[in-house]
Amino acid sequence: MSLSLGLLPIAGFMQPMRPTAYLAGVANCYEEYYLDETAEFSYRVHPIARVFLKFFAPRRKRCATMRGMSKAVKPLSIILLAVVVAVVAAVYLSRRPEEVPETSAAPVLGKGGGHFRGPEKAPITLVEFGDYSCPSCGAYHPVVKELLNRYPKQVRLEFHHYPLISIHPNAMAAALAVEAAGEQGRYWEMHDLIFEHQEEWSASPNPEPQFLALASRIGINSNDFMQAMRSPQLRDRVLQDVVRARDAKVDAVPTFFIDGERIHVTLSVGAFVEIIEARLRK
């Protein structure tokens, strides 16, 4: 209805008629012989309706088609209105707390506790809470790596474990495998390998042989590795990360923080770059 009202001023010379009738040109069709009067027909019907009728309605059926179009205006208006309301509702529901910075109670993360990659004095610290079994963490992994390559001096990554063991039975073992490799100074190499081969081990009933094979690929001593994987100290280290995650109200993996502030970022290097560039400009 509002659409048809909005279109009314376009043809100011027209005599007043009901908006729905005007839009569909129904008022022109009360006499059938008007159908042969092309000029009259074209002046009295809305341009959009005219184009539609010209191409889609046979000349003899134009009156009936126009009446049909007039009947369709009301349901179409309701459909349009419903789509607009649905869009507004969805946008409202998907708003993030960070979009209201002054009143936001967004959790702020304390420094340290994780494993670092990148220069110690980098101006930006990107903190990731991740689960090696989680497919989306695996999908974000190359993006984060690309980011570190792009900002070798400006960005430092701090990784924390957050294995969701209730849905990923191998997540804890994977975190321990990476920690065990870290005991031999190969934390990040193992971190990359575990993510890159996620599909091979994540559904395995016993992933340890696969972890061992990956570890030996980067020259890790097998005995020390297996011993470290069973170490209660390493398990405690992983659990400390889980406590940190819960303190920071992490409710999804991966979750990213930049300089202690939680960020919501899409799966693209560009999205990270935008946030980092904004931070660097500050």
């Binding site: 993030r96 497919p135 989306s136 409710d251 999804a252 991966p254 979750t255 899409t266 999205a271």
Partner: peptide, 14 residues
């Protein structure tokens, strides 16, 4: 818009 939090189930992101 990035990682999606679940409120009832776990694994929306996955």
């Amino acid at each position: 818009a990035g990682p999606i939090p679940c409120h009832i189930t776990r694994g929306c992101n996955d």
